[in-house]
Write a protein that binds this DNA or RNA. Structure first.
Lengths: 346, 346
DNA sequence: TCTCAGGATTGAACCGTTTTAATCTTGTGC
DNA sequence: GCACAAGATTAAAACGGTTCAATCCTGAGA
């Protein structure tokens, strides 16, 4: 039903090859011919069939994006960045939400190769390196997002999680906090592990006579609600800390809620640091101090990387782009207060 | 580089057509042959090339999803529902974030037709009906999401916004609120207009001697921050209301923040009703009473609809699926209090 | 043993592009 | 007026599948 290149050719009174040239290499055509063909294209509303195009030229101009959880605003922003960069480059992105399931990830990998995507932007779950390697063998280019390329010949864009972890603890340390709780996610998630490592390494730099006492609560699902429950439970035993460092902002929001229910003031009694700096953090009841990771930019950069690799593979060389996280100080943190010290005695 | 159907054929010692049959109509093959071909397929890791497939058979198994703002958790959930249903049906979804820009919408529409998607799930911006009609002519099936099909021959899934609006005002009315503020988005957005209409129609049913006094504040961008600013400004003039109805939850969160900064208690002094029941609403500092719209289910239903249309177009008949919103009462609303009445006098 | 029906398999055309080699025009210099 | 180069255009092959008409088997019935 839609107009084909043949329709355009006969409408313009030229051969089919000429129309193709008009589209892909306009400079080889005589100006008059080009104009005539253009006119026919417009009149017929011709849009080249991408499947046929791909079949012949091996180019689909489609990339896949695989994220573990699109409901997390961090990944939402990332996706926005990716699709904006893609659109600008004439590409299109297939969204794959893996729900952190290795099975879904494999399923999507198959679908994406069947669709002949030119590249995949992926935040890999635990250990899908092998599956990814198999995909790479098929000639599909990879960019690892928010994760560095472990032995995989691929580009990567990531944040310096080591540094981010340090940023959080340093901030609390400078404000006098010496008893801190770490609300972390599972260390199976590489980013989480890295941040925690960075945090501990930073602690080693504090003078031995003035150390921070750190205790850890693991929150497996990294959601607001799970965090709320965990902190509520923790507060029932004893309240002996002045700072909380959270694995992400959702966790921080849950913690804040639990604290306020107990009438614990923020930052009067307890300072809270989040991670990701999602939009909701900024507008939370107590605006949240957080580690900002510009997800949109990360996504944009990742998409640009893969597009440039697709456009000129010969002169492409794999690269690692690292973004530095930044500490955004808002009202949820402050200097440790006398009042808090008193509370700690109880 | 990847194995083609020919490779499989020679590997299995059969003709190319037989391999195709093994994939698409296994029942016509002799069991032994089928097994042999299957084995070759597995060994070579053959995945049929979707482009070639489409070219001949006219099927891409790709659908597009166009949403105005993927950062809004409502649309995020929707997208999740869509892609889950798609995956289950062997389809794949291309995500298009239009940022409410008609230009981007057109751009994406072109890309999607070039990609030969079989269908598009779209939440149309203002008046893109004409552009959509043009797409439909090309044989691309449409499902309107969260919007009914105005004269367009297409399926639609939507919420009963009229009812949702009524739900909100009725709830406040029953709790004794008679002075209410409506924090609405632009009425150019059809859903917003519908909700407001439903709200007003419900008000007409109240006895004439006991009416609600409604004043309206328009918040153009429907974000938390915009709402926060608007409400803060409003509170500076006079505080003479006991209830607030919000165009969505983001707006409600902003309003709550502004109220609390003024030490206005919720729901003691003012009750707040949101719309959408996003996840953050439930875990907000004051858990938010909201109108629940199961976005995930909506997306899932929409995707199923379009897939079934694609699979058997002949016996398909366009349908309208309407979901009923539900009122979820949480702590942000309550009966109007004496204290509040007193305040109103000032 | 021969015929024939029916299922299993094959071969070739075709989908809508890109691309390359071949052909057709022009215009220039002698 | 002719040969030839350069530029413009075209024809045909190829991409990797699907599909359908044609062919090949096999076994049953005569």
């Amino acid at each position: 039903m839609p107009a084909s290149i043949r329709d355009v050719a006969s409408h313009a009174g030229v051969s089919l090859g000429t129309v193709s040239n008009a589209i892909n290499r306009p400079e080889v055509l005589a100006p008059g011919t080009l104009r005539r063909v253009q006119k026919s294209i417009d009149e017929l509303g011709f849009i080249p069939n991408a499947s046929a195009r791909k079949l012949r030229a091996g180019r689909t101009r489609v990339v896949g994006l695989m994220v573990p959880d699109i409901s997390n605003p961090f990944f939402t922003d990332l996706a926005k960045g990716v699709s904006e960069a893609a659109l600008a480059g004439g590409y299109v992105v297939i969204l794959c939400n893996t729900d952190e399931s290795a099975e879904k990830e494999q399923q999507y990998l198959d679908v994406l190769t069947a669709q002949n995507v030119e590249g995949i932007l992926v935040t890999p779950a635990r250990d899908s390196i092998r599956a990814l390697a198999r995909v790479a063998e098929k000639g599909i280019r990879l960019v690892l997002v928010d994760r560095t390329s472990q032995g995989l010949a691929a580009c990567s864009v990531a944040f310096n999680d080591l540094y981010g972890g340090a940023l959080a603890i340093d901030h609390l340390y400078e404000n006098g906090h010496r008893k801190v709780i770490l609300l972390t996610g599972s260390e199976n998630i590489p980013q989480v592990a890295e941040r925690n490592r960075g945090l501990r390494e930073a602690m080693n730099k504090f003078p031995t006579h003035d150390q921070v006492e750190l205790s850890e609560i693991r929150i497996d699902s990294m959601t607001t609600f799970a965090s709320y429950e965990a902190v509520k439970l923790r507060l029932e035993s004893s309240f002996d800390f002045t700072g909380i460092i959270c694995g992400n902002d959702l966790i921080a929001l849950g913690a804040i809620r639990a604290l306020r229910e107990k009438n614990i003031s923020i930052p009067g009694d307890v300072s809270v640091v989040g991670y990701d700096d999602i939009d909701f953090a900024k507008n939370a009841w107590v605006p949240l101090t957080s580690i900002s990771q510009p997800a949109f930019e990360l996504g944009y950069a990742a998409a640009e990387l893969i597009i440039s690799e697709c456009e000129s593979p010969e002169r492409h060389v794999h690269q690692k782009i690292e973004f530095q996280p930044r500490l955004i100080v808002r009202e949820s943190t402050g200097p440790v207060a006398l009042k808090a010290s008193k509370l700690m005695i109880s």
